[in-house]
Design a protein around this nucleic acid. Structure first.
Lengths: 95, 95
DNA sequence: ATATTAGGTTTATTATATAAACTACTTTAT
DNA sequence: ATAAAGTAGTTTATATAATAAACCTAATAT
């Protein structure tokens, strides 16, 4: 009846991150931080979890002299998101 | 951009409980336990949280000699669920 | 020179979800 | 009548997760 909800995505902040990346395919740390109103520490931790899971890729580079972290969603991330949305529907549209 | 997700509903088991009650308007402990595959302890805790929040009402009575706990969703519970679903959509349908 | 801002990470704290253990009672078997 | 097993939960403990606080390094402004 109820499908499992991927715990990695069933988190407000991580879901927001994935949501942004699904829409844009590339976003940097500061941009995501502003869109989500997250603290930097929290965002850092959650991005690392998504990266560990293979849902996003993280690239660290320098823009001029300042560091810059860019995130992209992976194929696995897209699949996981789609699966999560489908699972959620078993809760939102009860039969 | 992203709306807050009511933490009381953003929990797999509590969401499943509400989902069941939205559909049936009345369900007892054992029924919910079976539908959700939850352990009794976990379910007991989550039902109490939903009750405290005023999202469900809980009635304890005897069916013959055996105790029986019946749950119903409240108006506040219905409203909270609808609000939660609306908020979720800001994550699921990014613009 | 020092104060502030940018862009983070690491560590610590708090909250949450879950499971394990327990309570209280009933039914069934011996 | 007593013991064993089942029903319907609650309470307590533990593991995990989310969040915040503190910290770090370098750049820029005063």
């Amino acid at each position: 009846m109820f499908k499992e909800l991927d715990p990695l995505l069933h988190s407000q902040l991580r879901l927001a991150v994935i949501s942004i990346l699904i829409g844009s395919e590339e976003a940097d740390f500061v941009f995501i931080k502003e869109k989500t109103n997250a603290t930097a520490g929290n965002l850092s931790v959650q991005i690392e979890k998504l990266r560990e899971a293979g849902y996003i890729s993280v690239e660290k580079a320098f823009r001029g002299k300042m560091p810059r972290t860019t995130c992209r969603i992976t194929k696995e991330g897209i699949q996981a998101f789609e699966k999560y949305v489908a699972a959620l529907n078993s809760y939102l549209k009860p039969k």
